[in-house]
């Protein structure tokens, strides 16, 4: 079901983006002199790992809600 798939994709992307932004904010909040690329690279890494972590969880939950067997 595309609706189910796209809403799940939207959700895990949003969560991962939020995690990456949170990371970026934290690099400034700590007031340490991190190079810009370390901040951006770190945010990208956090985004990637967050996507990998949240993707199966969100898809599985969405599948359960729609009454079909989850893929994982």
């Amino acid at each position: 079901m595309p609706a189910k798939g796209s809403s799940a994709a939207l959700l895990y992307t949003a969560i991962s983006l939020a995690a990456a932004l949170l990371f970026l904010a934290a690099t400034y909040a700590t007031r340490k002199p991190y190079p810009l690329l370390a901040r951006l690279g770190g945010a990208a890494w956090v985004f990637l790992l967050s996507m990998i972590i949240t993707m199966p969880l969100v898809i599985s939950r969405a599948a359960r809600r729609h009454g079909s067997p989850p893929p994982s």
Binding site: A8, P56, S60, S72
Partner: peptide, 11 residues
């Protein structure tokens, strides 16, 4: 796998 929302060792 990711396209189907699944993860494994390959990832």
């Amino acid at each position: 796998g990711l396209k189907k929302g699944v993860t494994d060792m390959n990832l």
